[in-house]
């Protein structure tokens, strides 16, 4: 028994130690969030206010990130766009994860017809191309962020559902759960002590990937001018607007690109698979 005990305790230590990649990811994300939410407090400039004198002006002390093609503050626009992207991504992950996890547990627990029906629903939603679904919704309700976010959630929930269902199915038949039932514990206890501790680390991983996907989707839709409409600052839309001026003001075009890159990188680092 001694070797087994030694092995298991060392693996526990490994689990608790946060990986370098994850740490870098969290740090980048923290900086981006701070930037997005602190900027309007220390730099209260309206992101839609134009001043044609400053069109495409480079960075200066009074305007650290310069101006865009309509003389709007890039700093203010970037911060506003990030708030929108982060908010939408967070909201869509939340609205995808909550029903996904709950339905996954329900399907695995009840089995039979409930399981079949929910699985078919998931398969059907997955068969629809995700982007098409979002395009359809934005066509029905143009220029409304909620259409974007409902569309993205509708695509994302299936991942949480399938993952939760598969994990719960094996756990629910385990002797540990049987023992807890015999000892008089109800479903709430089984979810809290048996299922949630096993599912939650996976949800964090999938959630971070999902947030990255959502941010890319919002930016991609903005880039093809389907998402939010001007003058709302949005990362993808900013790229489209600034693309014609890439020669005159490369710094302006690069800013939204770098921000999307850093945001997606940080989320992927957080989600990244643990090195074994």
């Amino acid at each position: 028994m001694t070797t087994i005990a030694v092995n298991s305790s060392s693996s526990v230590l490994e689990q608790k130690r946060i990986s370098v990649g994850r740490f870098i990811g969290f740090t980048i994300l923290a900086f981006i969030v701070l930037f997005a939410f602190l900027t309007p407090l220390v730099w209260p400039v309206d992101p839609t206010k134009q001043s044609l004198r400053n069109v495409l002006a480079g960075p200066s002390w009074s305007e650290p990130l310069g101006y865009d093609h309509l003389g709007r503050s890039m700093l203010a626009r970037l911060a506003a766009a990030l708030r929108l992207s982060l908010g939408l991504a967070f909201l869509s992950v939340l609205t995808a994860a909550v029903p996904g996890v709950l339905l996954g547990i329900l399907a695995a627990w009840k089995g039979g017809i409930v399981d079949r029906a929910l699985s078919i629903l998931g398969d059907v939603s997955l068969a629809l191309p995700g982007l098409l679904l979002v395009l359809m919704l934005t066509a029905i309700a143009p220029d409304s962020p909620w259409a974007l976010y409902v569309g993205i959630s509708l695509v994302l929930w299936i991942e949480y559902f399938r993952l939760t269902r598969a994990t719960t199915r094996t756990l629910i038949t385990s002797p540990a759960v049987q023992a807890s039932r015999l000892l008089g514990f109800g479903p709430a206890y089984i979810v809290r002590r048996h299922l949630w501790p096993e599912i939650s680390p996976m949800i964090l991983t999938v959630g971070a990937f999902g947030a990255a996907t959502a941010i890319m989707a919002i930016a991609a839709l903005g880039f093809v001018s389907v998402g939010v409409r001007p003058p709302t600052p949005e990362l993808g839309l900013m790229m489209t607007e600034l693309l014609p001026y890439y020669e005159e003001a490369p710094h302006a075009l690069l800013q939204p690109i770098v921000v999307v890159f850093l945001l997606v990188l940080s989320l992927n680092l957080i989600a990244g698979r643990k090195a074994r």
């Binding site: 385990s174 002797p175 540990a176 049987q178 023992a179 807890s180 015999l182 000892l183 008089g184 002590r193 048996h194 501790p197 096993e198």
Partner: peptide, 17 residues
């Protein structure tokens, strides 16, 4: 509740985490 069971594989009879 007065009827209980002891399992063959003790580690798999407890919540793991």
């Amino acid at each position: 509740i007065k009827l209980q069971k002891l399992y063959q594989d003790p580690p798999s009879a407890f919540p793991q985490r």
